[in-house]
Design a protein around this nucleic acid. Structure first.
Length: 758
DNA sequence: TATGTGGACTTTTTT
DNA sequence: AGTCCACATA
């Protein structure tokens, strides 16, 4: 116990040892948030206030859940696998598996990932002859997900015009189709659980009285449905311990509602509000910069980070002439960092949008510096893996039409569009799945479809008694996937990935406690585990907290859930000491000795789209706050006068965020006025050279010799600094398009406007 | 049915 | 500029 609370600062200690009441912990970046969460759980258990079974801990990512379990096992001898620690979706999956009948789901229901959901919607539109120009599948998907995240079924959505009425109809059709196929999308996992518990009183009361303590990580990221889900789980008895940071709320665009923090404070009558403001990560100048920047936001719960670590180094700021040159500068700085003893792993290059990584990657590649880009395709999202998974899905639940269509003719087995059309007609006519409709198709199409069904059936039959990894291996061979990729020119990597799927199955089986000899397909092993695994109370089947997934689902079903809910690593070549490239969003939660934040230009960061959204710029500022607070010791900020974007050169002004930082913490590496753009930017130079054809055209159009040039920086009394983006007309008629950053693009008459050179 | 071509798109992302 | 997707063609 002494040990457990040892080394906590007063605020952390206070948070960890709060009484069993609603609590809101405002945990600043680097303030030891995860430590507080895990220590709180350990303290509750060790002091005998609650048994491990009475704890529900919710996170957003699998990574965070795993981290929590690892730290918890390090703190006390406890089997965390049986505990209810997981993501919202993972926990919902667990609940729905245990109570599938009450939730009106088939036992082997499967989970659609975003790809699957979109392809399902496309199919739906096609089947109903809907013009996908008028109803873009992606929009319909957003519509449906948004409705679900607000707890609304199709019948609850109010439609005020024909267009929306149609959308609602399609939403209803979509849900019916999912139900027929026995599949649920991500939002459905949440909503279905919410509905299950709100309708089923004994079940609700069981869980409400069982979970005495509910702990929530990253509370600022909860959406409306998740917040209501928590309220329902908590009932009136549970102590909800919510940890979050409103200043790090950067996911509003996907439904996160920071307002949930103040709603929680109000609705739960929170009396225990603790701020963790002591930062253990960054040096003083970095924190001062972050603090001053975020102070420009209006709607804040209020928080200021401080450190004992001293001021440290100044923030280094660099103005580049082009994106290319910015990249080259980064590499020079990184090289000298490495020369001074930094490891590449400890250097991160952050950018607002993925498109910015290319130039940097090119530069790193030519410099021969190893790097790793986050955010690529993830293991379970690769096409070949999705194919293999689809075969497994069909063996587990043949009515999954998405899975059926994905592989019915892959590898090709002579089942073309015509055959499938016949099949889909039959399926629609009888209201059954494609798989079930196969017997209704006659002729040659029927024969080849029948052969496919036989393939799936015999794979299922032959592997019924085998452990999961062996089953996967057999499916890879029997499906013809391996053979297909062997014949393909660049199939080697794909075969390697498929073999990795077998390893993933092995790893899964041992990690989840299924045991390597457990048959993959046999039903739930509740009979074998016996004991208290499932108890009946008021006629309701109740899951015991220590019962892992093994008791409620087969290894195969569990593995398929895992594949959907945990798409796997998206890092390329892990392991190697490499520089880290990622968007600011994906950097959240990470920290590095040295951080480069690049592309700090108006329009890019803050992003131009954010100006139109209300609260958009504040979210961008929080994003910048997250970026700054990733750095431990050294922080570089850079921006560029010109940048190639979407095949066009853009002239941006520097980000407004520079004006919101403390001058005394900054060190400008480049002189305010650089050499002229056409000097450093080869492309611009080419355009401006008098001999070039392009320039002769420009001259004849009056683009030159009027005292101003495209790309030149100017200052205007009202609009501040800007960049000349284009010039039209000549002589006294000359007018210039000038990008004034936050003031937007202006068209000014050059003979009238008072402009100064910068 | 594999392959090519034109057109539209382009902020951020986890489950 | 680069990617993805739908549709057309050999």
């Amino acid at each position: 116990m002494q040990n457990l609370l040892h080394n906590l600062n007063p605020e952390q200690l206070a948070a960890v040892t709060l009484p069993a009441q609603p609590a809101l912990i405002l945990a600043g970046a680097g303030s030891g948030k995860t430590r507080v969460l895990t220590t709180r759980i350990a303290w509750l258990i060790q002091t005998g206030q609650v048994s491990p079974a009475g704890i529900l801990a919710v996170t957003f990512t699998n990574k965070a859940a795993k981290e929590m379990m690892t730290r918890l096992s390090a703190m006390m001898p406890i089997n965390t696998r049986g505990m209810w620690i997981g993501t919202f979706h993972g926990l919902c999956n667990r609940l729905l598996r245990a109570h599938y009948r009450d939730a009106a789901l088939p036992q082997a229901f499967q989970i659609l990932d975003t790809q699957d959901q979109l392809s399902m919607i496309k199919r739906l539109l096609k089947a109903n002859n809907i013009d996908d120009e008028k109803y873009p599948p992606r929009n319909l998907m957003y519509f449906i997900n948004n409705a679900k995240e607000n707890g609304l079924r199709a019948q609850d959505v109010e439609a005020f015009d024909d267009f929306n009425r149609r959308m609602v109809e399609l939403y209803a059709l979509y849900d019916e189709q999912c139900q027929r196929e026995g599949v649920v999308d991500f939002a459905e996992l949440l909503l279905r659980t919410y509905e299950l518990l709100s309708r089923n009183q004994p079940l609700r009361e069981h869980y409400q009285s069982r979970f005495r303590h509910i702990l929530v990580d990253e509370f600022q990221d909860t959406n409306n449905l998740q917040y209501n889900w928590l309220k329902l789980m908590a009932g009136t008895q549970a102590a909800v311990f919510a940890v979050g940071d409103d200043d790090q709320s950067i996911y509003a665009f996907r439904g996160a509602n920071v307002g949930n923090m103040s709603a929680f404070e109000r609705e739960f009558k929170v009396e225990n509000l603790i701020k963790l403001e002591q930062n253990y990560r960054s040096h003083g100048h970095i924190l001062d910069t972050a603090n001053m920047l975020i102070a420009n936001n209006t709607k804040r719960l209020g928080k200021n980070l401080h450190t004992d670590a001293g001021h440290g180094e100044l923030i280094r700021i660099y103005e580049a002439t082009s994106d290319l040159q910015e990249a080259q500068w980064i590499i020079e700085e990184a090289k000298s960092l490495i020369a001074e003893g930094s490891t590449r792993n400890e250097i991160a290059i952050l950018y607002r949008s993925n498109a910015q990584s290319r130039v940097i990657e090119h530069a790193l590649f030519s410099a021969g510096i190893p790097y790793r880009v986050y955010g690529g395709q993830r293991f379970f999202e690769r096409a070949e893996i999705k194919h293999a998974i689809a075969y497994l899905q069909l063996m587990d639940n043949p009515h999954n039409d998405s899975a059926f269509l994905r592989v019915v003719n892959f590898p090709t087995r002579g089942i073309g569009a015509r055959s499938l059309e016949q099949l889909q007609d039959a399926a629609r006519q009888y209201g059954i799945s494609l798989y079930a409709a196969v017997p209704y198709v006659t002729g040659k199409a029927g024969t080849s479809l029948g052969a496919f069904v036989k393939l799936v059936e015999s794979a299922r039959f032959e592997t019924a008694q085998l452990p999961l990894p062996e089953m996967v291996q057999i499916v890879l061979d029997a499906s013809g996937l391996i053979a297909h990729y062997q014949n393909e020119k660049e199939g080697a990597d794909r075969i390697e990935n498929l073999e990795q799927l077998v390893s993933a199955a092995s790893l899964f089986v041992s990690e989840e406690g299924f045991g390597h000899d457990a048959p993959a397909q046999l039903g739930p092993r509740s009979e074998q585990t016996a004991g208290p695994a499932i108890v009946t109370q008021d006629g309701v089947e109740i899951l015991d907290a220590d019962a892992p997934l093994v008791t409620v689902m087969s290894p195969l079903s569990a593995f398929l859930s895992h594949a959907s809910l945990e798409a796997g690593d998206n890092q390329a070549q892990a392991g190697q000491d490499a520089m880290q490239l990622m968007t600011v969003h994906s950097a959240k939660g990470l920290e590095f000795d040295a951080v480069f934040i690049t592309g700090l230009e108006e329009g890019l960061f803050p992003h131009e789209n954010s100006q139109k959204e209300d609260g958009g710029v504040e979210e961008e500022r929080r994003l910048m706050y997250v970026a700054i607070t990733r750095a431990r010791r050294r922080l570089y900020l850079s921006f560029s006068q010109t940048r190639m974007l979407h095949g066009q050169t853009r002239y941006n002004t520097k980000s407004r965020f520079f004006d919101e930082m403390p001058e005394e913490s900054l060190k400008w590496l480049s002189p305010k006025v650089q050499q002229h753009h056409w000097f450093a930017n080869p492309k611009a130079a080419w355009d401006e050279v008098p001999e070039s054809g392009a320039n002769r055209i420009a001259q004849s159009m009056g683009k030159k010799n009027i005292g101003w040039r495209i790309g030149e920086s100017v200052a205007h009394a009202k609009f501040g600094e800007g960049v000349i983006v284009n010039i039209e007309g000549s002589g006294s008629n000359a007018r210039a398009h000038i990008n004034f950053g936050r003031h937007g693009m202006k068209l000014l008459d050059l003979s009238i406007a008072k402009l100064d050179k910068v």
